[in-house]
Amino acid sequence: MGETVQVKQKGPVTTITLNRPDQLNAMDEQLLEELAEILQQVEQDESKIVVLTGAGRAFSAGGDMKTMLQSDDPEGFKRVMEIIKKVSTTFYALPKVTIAAINGAAAGLGLSLALAADYVVAQEDAKIAMNFIGIGLIPDGGGHFYMEQRLGTVKAKQAIWEGQTMMAQEAEAIGLIDVTTDELKEDLEEHLVKLQHLPLQAMIETKRILNYKQLPLLEEVLDLETKGQSKMRQTHDHEEGIQAFLDKREPNFKGK
């Protein structure tokens, strides 16, 4: 068990908890490395169901802003993006039934990771945002791939461009998440009980066929996101987006 990611197995269910609650489970390099390692371990364990959730008030606020502000090192950026690629592909292809249980915010990279799950369940007061555009960046962590899978190409583009924060019911209404509940813990437990009385081996085999077929495309998208994000980090709009974030004001983008 790592410092920033906790894992617990109970019968056929493994629960992975992002554990930086004071930072709203923002993903720094340490958390991503620990998550990648734990996912590889879980891939080999005997569980049939994996729940991914966050400690405290949020699922994950996304990539760690302090890490982003401190890292102008191209090699450091490349290393982090490689870890993100490993996390995204491993979680997407896990030979288990996966559930993202969203408590509080799921934004940016946090939302990309949640959307890699087979089921996405959210507390009704959860806030859902693919909000990279607000700092002049593009989605990463496979965000383009997962948004397109759930919304279709045109709606995915529009949602990414708008970068709006949605309440859980709004996200469910457009098909971005699967279930909204006012009692996340209780309803999740009920769903887990139902799953354990289903032919999980057959469900996992269907997942293997459908997801593995898409895995090369996901890997290609992740590589394209790395190249695109590297370019966007050099733009005036990204610098302006970051400065506006620090100044707590609206950004003045110029398309440069």
Rank of each mutant, 00 (worst) to 15 (best):
M68D: 12
G110F: 00
G104C: 08
D223P: 10
G136W: 07
V179P: 04
E219L: 03
Q40L: 13
L200A: 01
K96G: 06
Q158E: 15
Q158V: 13
A126P: 13
H197V: 05
Q23T: 14
I102R: 01
T14F: 06
K96N: 06
A117L: 06
L218G: 00
E3M: 11
F59S: 07
D140F: 15
V51C: 04
F245V: 07
I102P: 06
I133T: 15
K66N: 14
K48P: 10
D118L: 07
F245Y: 12
G62W: 06
V13R: 03
I177T: 07
S230F: 08
I128L: 04
A106R: 02
T153W: 08
E82R: 13
M166S: 08
D118Y: 04
D73R: 02
D237G: 03
L200Q: 00
G152W: 02
A26C: 05
P216L: 00
L195V: 00
Q196V: 07
Q40M: 13
S230Q: 09
V179I: 15
A244Q: 05
I204H: 00
D178E: 00
K231D: 15
P95K: 03
H144C: 10
G136P: 11
Y119D: 12
L246W: 01
N252K: 14
Q44P: 14
Q40A: 13
Q234I: 04
R20L: 06
L200H: 00
K85S: 12
Q23C: 12
G141R: 02
P95Y: 01
E3P: 09
G143V: 07
D125T: 14
L222R: 01
D72G: 15
L195T: 01
Q243W: 07
K10M: 14
K254M: 10
Y92N: 01
P251R: 01
D187G: 05
M203S: 05
I135N: 08
L188F: 08
L198P: 07
E205F: 01
P139G: 10
I177K: 01
L198R: 09
L217S: 07
E239K: 14
K48V: 08
T153C: 09
Q214W: 03
E43I: 11
K86N: 10
K194P: 05
I174V: 10
Q123C: 10
D125H: 11
Q9H: 10
K127E: 15
G142I: 03
A106N: 05
R150N: 03
V42Q: 00
G228T: 01
A36G: 03
G255V: 08
E220I: 02
